[in-house]
Computed example of a mutant assay.
Amino acid sequence: MPRRVIITCALTGAGDTAGRNENVPVTPEEIAADAIAAARAGASIVHIHVRDPQTTLGSREVAHYREVVRIVRASDVDPVLNLTAGMGGDLVLDPQRPTTQQEGTDLVNATDRLPHVEELLPEICTIDCGSLNFGEGSNLYVSTPDMLREGAARIQQLGVKPEMEIFDTGNLWFANVLVEEGLIDPPPMYQLCMGIPYGAPADPGLLQAMVHMLPAGAEFTSFALGRNQLPWAARSVLAGGHVRVGLEDNLYLSKGVKATNAQLTERAVGLVESLGENVATPDEAREILDLTVQVPSGGEGARG
């Protein structure tokens, strides 16, 4: 019997990519428009970062999230909203004086990464399950066990489903600890992030090993970066998981051809169907993940 496969479209991310593809959405209006287009193309979930419209770089500004969510909820589509809660973990050190923070540092505590989640109550938000040497240079992503327990407890209190972002096997080990400690409600939702320097390599054998580490009843997606995005989507489906595509992770439809989020979503729909599976509707995704509708402060419904 065909399985229902959830497609997530990760719309924009926080990387310095806007100058490399003019289709990367930057303003709240552009991000919301892409969310709506991706949902029309078949995305069950839209994963949302926001950017500073002046610099085009990633932002934690609650007003930008508020506007994106307002527009999407007022539209004629109803995708599951997944807001990042990973911003605020960047630590850039002077390698010669490692007690000195450099430009680019944006480091706050666990609950200060959540004001937009507290206000808007999306159905899902992310929680990055460990610290990481993030690429070359001296940029660290910081997410300690104490921070993670505090953040997970607050997200659970809000009634929001955490998507646990897994960048390496140690992250997965600790995510399983969060599940064991009762800080993650069932079914736990894992995102296996492959090929991000210097986390887990995009290696099929490693993906299979990580899938074997998941607890019973878990739901997972796995993605890989760049030209690996669509082939890896197939690997994720074949491993029993769901799919993530979008301009956060890949800027091209094919060699030299710049993509849009809707185009990448359409490719993912075709891929899932070619493997004999069905694409989950947003409401089917809610059923699979056991999502609960929340009511944001001010009384406005969480889904419009």
Results as ranks from 00 to 15, higher is better:
301 G>Q: 04
225 L>R: 10
11 L>N: 02
275 L>E: 04
1 M>W: 12
299 G>Y: 05
74 A>D: 13
6 I>K: 01
118 E>V: 08
210 M>Q: 14
296 P>S: 05
283 D>K: 13
298 G>N: 10
164 M>C: 08
298 G>Q: 12
121 L>K: 11
33 A>E: 08
36 I>L: 02
49 H>C: 06
139 N>L: 11
191 Q>W: 01
226 G>N: 15
176 N>K: 10
107 L>W: 03
171 N>W: 09
5 V>H: 06
78 D>W: 00
250 N>S: 06
135 G>A: 14
190 Y>N: 09
110 A>Y: 05
110 A>H: 08
91 L>T: 02
59 S>V: 13
69 V>T: 11
7 I>G: 01
284 E>G: 08
199 G>Y: 04
262 A>C: 09
261 N>A: 07
88 G>W: 02
290 D>L: 05
240 G>L: 10
48 I>A: 04
8 T>D: 04
289 L>K: 04
39 A>I: 06
81 L>K: 01
25 P>S: 03
231 P>W: 14
260 T>W: 01
158 L>S: 07
142 V>Q: 02
150 E>T: 12
143 S>F: 11
109 N>W: 13
46 V>S: 04
91 L>S: 04
18 A>C: 10
24 V>I: 14
156 Q>L: 14
293 V>I: 11
47 H>W: 05
141 Y>F: 13
302 A>V: 09
12 T>W: 14
25 P>L: 04
128 D>T: 10
127 I>N: 03
